[in-house]
Computed example of a mutant assay.
Amino acid sequence: MSTIASAVRVRSGRALLYATLFLLLLAFLAPLLWALSGSFKPRGDIFGYPPKLIPDPLTFDNYRHLVDQQPFWRWFLMSTGVAAIATVVSVSVCALAGYGFAKFRFAGKRLLFGVMFSSLSIPFAVILVPLFVILVKTGLGSPWFALIVPWAAPAFGIFMMQQYIVQSVPDSVLEAARIDGASEFGIFWRIVLPLLRPSLGALALWTFLQSYNSFLWPLVLVSDSSQYTLPLGLQTLFVSENRQYDLVMAGAVLAVVPAVALFVLLRKQLLEGLSTGAVKG
């Protein structure tokens, strides 16, 4: 009887867990599904009652008007271009800095790492205005440069790389490479970087999304409408007199495409990172 009761409790627990996860999944997907549905509806039907998830009639006019009547592709290219450059810079800088903190000894290392780690507790809104003033005063306020600065060397990325290198890169391997005459940069390029692929994939995805979805920093920095990023461009549609919800929803659906594509591209690295963490944890 105890075995049967135990099996029933296990199955009940699993059923409750699956039901909870399913409800959470619906909660996370509901806004995206509603945006997807609204992007195919006429503006007057978006807030119709009773609400309908399946558009009737279904129309592609929202996408056509967004592309033909608004500079959507300019916003899109600005956001993806800035995010792509920021991702490459961030991954490169964080990997090098993390490697330095993890495997080298130098004066002030603990103090420098402590200051860097403490900066994680500072909200970006606190340094937003000083950073903007510094960039403008130094003549570095060009959007293509300034939009990348906050993501060039994030403390989170450096800490993440440092922790991963400490756990995944043995000192014995590095010492053997040095004995064989490899240079420090050669060791980093040929030995360390291949071992960092899972963490680099996760950091690349995080950095891309942070830069791509950034709204507050471009809002402060960019004044020329020809240099708007995608969040700023869609915001202009929302605050217009007509509040073009139909175009905003169509734009939001198209804006998801790069993030999903990057996730699919890096899924192998992400899964490897999760499995590595499970083994080591």
Rank of each mutant, 00 (worst) to 15 (best):
L203D: 09
S211V: 09
L174H: 03
S225V: 15
L221G: 07
N213F: 08
R178L: 09
G201C: 09
I179Q: 06
L232H: 12
W189M: 05
R197Y: 07
N213H: 09
L219E: 15
L234Q: 03
A202R: 01
A204H: 00
G201L: 02
P198M: 01
L193K: 05
S172W: 08
S172N: 09
S223E: 14
F188L: 08
S172E: 14
F208Y: 01
L221Q: 11
E184M: 03
L203T: 04
P194S: 06
Q235I: 04
S226V: 12
W217T: 13
L221C: 06
W206P: 01
L174E: 12
F188S: 05
T207S: 01
F208G: 05
L209W: 04
Y228E: 11
L221S: 03
G201Q: 03
F188G: 11
L221N: 03
R190I: 05
P218K: 01
S211T: 13
L219I: 04
S225F: 14
V222M: 09
L205W: 00
D224R: 12
S172V: 12
F188I: 05
Q227W: 14
F188H: 04
A177V: 03
N213Y: 07
L193R: 08
L221K: 07
S183W: 02
P231T: 12
W206C: 07
P231R: 06
V222N: 10
L193Q: 02
A204G: 06
L234K: 04
G233R: 14
V222T: 11
L230P: 14
L232S: 12
V222R: 11
T229F: 13
